[in-house]
Amino acid sequence: MDIKIITISREFGCNGTEVAERLAKGLKFFLVNKKYINESMVKHGLTEEQLESLEESSIQPFSDTRKKYIELMNRLILEIAEEKPIVLLGRGGQFLFRNHPYAFHVKLIGSIESRVLEVIKQYKLDKVSALRLISEQDRRRDLYINKIFGGDWHDPSLYSLIINMDYFDVSGAVKMITRAIKIAERNSYVKFEGVSEYPKDATGYIPHFAHSSEEEFAKLLDFYGIRWLYEPKTFILECDSEGNIISAFTPDFYLPDFDLYIELTTQRQRLVNYKNRKIKRLKELYPDVNIKMIYGKDYKNILRKFGLI
């Protein structure tokens, strides 16, 4: 099995950009960085000013326009990953391709001391300004990931390899990642053999479905050539005053060609009512999001139509 997607997540001041560039060059992978994404977004009609507004940091929920830009960005990344092997720098790649069978997730970390030194050197700043910049960037990345993917990017289980850049220079890190990928490719081969029976999402990933009805539904979509993603996004429904998430909702499927989320509900009435309330709230908070609920009765009639029950 060949690794086709390498995601690089990094704490600010860990030379992530250089590591990603050299790694892509060495492996002959296509580098998907901010520059490439911005150029692609401009091709899709966004102006430079709109792109700049994407970088603004705020604890407030994202505006609808910004959410649309981010959805477009995610779609562009998924599309390029289908075309050729990529090294993806930042942009929540570890979530976008989470558990993807052909993805390898790297995180670069460092002590605050070494990061400050690196930032002083790179940006010609004094110590206070460097520390402030690191703090601002760390906070921005926390918020970005939390808002878009509803997850914590510091969770080590998200990564295939975490490198402490206090101990390695860029060249050493690139060598280590390249070597680690070769080992992972050998070890993963058996793991993914014989899984062609299972439904694959729009990126080729075989998800672990929470319920057999979801797997059946994915097979149905596959049969009719409808591209889908399983639980790709969590919508935040409520936060406390410090921005911690109190309530969120993750629809089962997203159909990118129809810009449609689908929630399957084949459970007990009490849970259906609970989900209905959440979907009602989601529609209030995200009026531009298209979501459809398929209830147990609908689903049964769909299966009956195909003679499956």
């Binding site: 097979k219 149905l220 049969f223 050539g225 499956l308």
Partner: peptide
């Protein structure tokens, strides 16, 4: 062709 519940087929 009609979906028959088989996993590998396509329409």
């Amino acid at each position: 062709s009609k979906y028959s519940g088989s996993s590998s087929g396509v329409v």
